[in-house]
Amino acid sequence: MTETTDDLVVLRELAFAYGERQVLHDINLRIPRGKVVGIMGGSGCGKTTILRLIGGQLRASMGEVRVAGEVVAELDRDRLYALRRKIGMLFQFGALFTDMTVFDNVAFPMREHTELPEEVIRDLVLLKLHAVGLRGAAQLRPSELSGGMARRVALARAISLDPMLVMYDEPFAGLDPISLGVVGQLIRRLNDALGITSVVVTHDVYESLKIVDYLYFISDGRVVASGTPAEVRSSTMPFVHQFVNGEPDGPVPFHYPALPLTEELMYAEPG
């Protein structure tokens, strides 16, 4: 894809390290407005890190992140917070506030950022919960929800302020097959109905191929492949092939780097 003003998020030559540990080397990717874009990669490849860079929770060591034309790292605190109000994020395990009911969780961003009267907030919250099919669960506590329900409540909370961008961190992880389909369809439906842009970070190729418009593959801190679902399905690239078919070994090795086993066993010292 080439850069246009239609891109809501642009990452250019992005590099990031946690201390000594270089996680991202050179990430280039664009997320066009109104689309659902998947970012795919194995566990620990830096997917969550990319979302935190987009949200300005982390700062890149090189390169830049642009959201809606603004360089995130250059924003001062007030403008960063203003930007974040327009971004919804679904955390990997929901990150619902455990000391509040489902209703109060969804109302939280509205109560913090708007002066709306409580009756209006009530109606808005019930609408959001209705959109994810959980209006009846408004008075439950997060501990009373199943994994799939918690994910949907978090989704309702993420869209509570009608964001322009919603980021999903592993929305499919740990869900049963039915919830999986429900969450996937919700992401697609909300994206199209509310005119938002969605980034779905996941290692679940199968589910994401069903809902995304475009897919990036990340390995070793770089984008190694990308394409539409149709292109990905027919791709002959070894990496994509391994990922799509779930083969244990290939370009992504099964073993964490280590000495050859024979060497390690022969020279092993006790203690």
């Binding site: 929770q57 974040r84 109000r85 990997q92 990150a95 961003p109 913090e112 950022h113």
Partner: peptide, 22 residues
């Protein structure tokens, strides 16, 4: 500590709410 471990503080930050103040 548990709010931090379960990313509740991080979620708050991403909702443009400062966890130190809130």
């Amino acid at each position: 500590g548990l709010m931090k471990a379960t990313e509740q503080l991080s979620a708050m930050e991403m909702m443009a709410v400062d966890p130190i103040a809130r």
